[in-house]
Amino acid sequence: MTSSVTPAPPDETAPPLAPPGVYAPQEDTALLAGALAEEPLPPGAHVLDVGTGTGALALRAARRGARVTAVDVSWRAVRAARRNARRAGLPVRVRHGDLFAPVRGESFDLIVTNPPYVPGPDDAREPFGAVTSWHGGRDGRAVLDRICREAPALLSPGGTLLLVHSALSDPGRTVGHLRASGLSAAVTHRHRIAFGPVLRARAEWLRERGLLSATEDREELVIVRAQAPC
């Protein structure tokens, strides 16, 4: 059963710095933060934030007493996350690398990820390399499918994956892939938002592909929760 979730309120501390080229926390970050807040997380739990950006989610987990590792393929993001962790006085381990490559052989009680998921033409270009934060290929699944294949092997027994993406990127496919990997998986939360700049710029292309109706001007975000067997 899916439900609506109220995105997590902003941290009471100073917001993380987001330099040019690093994805600034937005509605999808807040939605994932809300799902993270609902997860039981005992002190000392090992948490992985993949595609950490500014480190916003990693910092939330660290404030709950978790041992947190954050990974991003962008050096700009790695430097931003490290700086934000230092500003917050939190011991977040930040690694540079492609998805799970820096943490092969480790296991985690919780993995959170806000990957690139917006469908778009293959020749999409944006300044400062920021497009890598949201462009997910023609079907939005260039990174999502890799996560579905690779994340299960890094979960501890009973460990949980929390993944946010757009309904435009086929949540049913995400759930199906994760279940095929032996996890229990479902869409647990949905939240509709007005189009941001990226979807407004791609709306015509999305309508040509039949992913949007002629009048649609809101996007549905979903949280997929998957859990490994104990």
Rank of each mutant, 00 (worst) to 15 (best):
A24L: 10
P19V: 11
P7Y: 11
P9I: 15
L41M: 08
P20R: 15
P20N: 09
V47M: 08
P9R: 08
Q26Y: 09
L32Y: 03
D28E: 13
L32A: 14
A37R: 07
Y23G: 09
Y23L: 14
A45S: 15
D11F: 00
Q26K: 07
L36P: 05
T13P: 02
P16S: 08
A24H: 12
Q26R: 14
A45Y: 00
V22L: 01
L31I: 11
E38H: 00
A30T: 00
A18T: 14
P7R: 07
P20A: 15
P16Q: 03
H46C: 05
L17N: 01
G21D: 09
G21K: 12
Q26W: 12
E27S: 13
G44Q: 09
L31H: 09
D11T: 01
P9M: 09
E39L: 11
P42R: 07
A8T: 06
L41T: 02
V50R: 04
P20K: 09
A24M: 05
L36Q: 04
V47C: 06
L31M: 12
T13K: 06
A33N: 09
T13D: 03
L36C: 04
Y23N: 01
A24P: 10
V50A: 03
P10I: 12
D49L: 00
P43Y: 10
A8S: 15
L31G: 09
P10S: 15
E39W: 00
L32E: 02
T13S: 13
D28N: 02
L17V: 15
E38P: 02
P7M: 08
G21W: 08
A35Y: 13
A8D: 13
L48Q: 05
P25L: 12
D28A: 06
D49I: 00
D49H: 04
L41G: 02
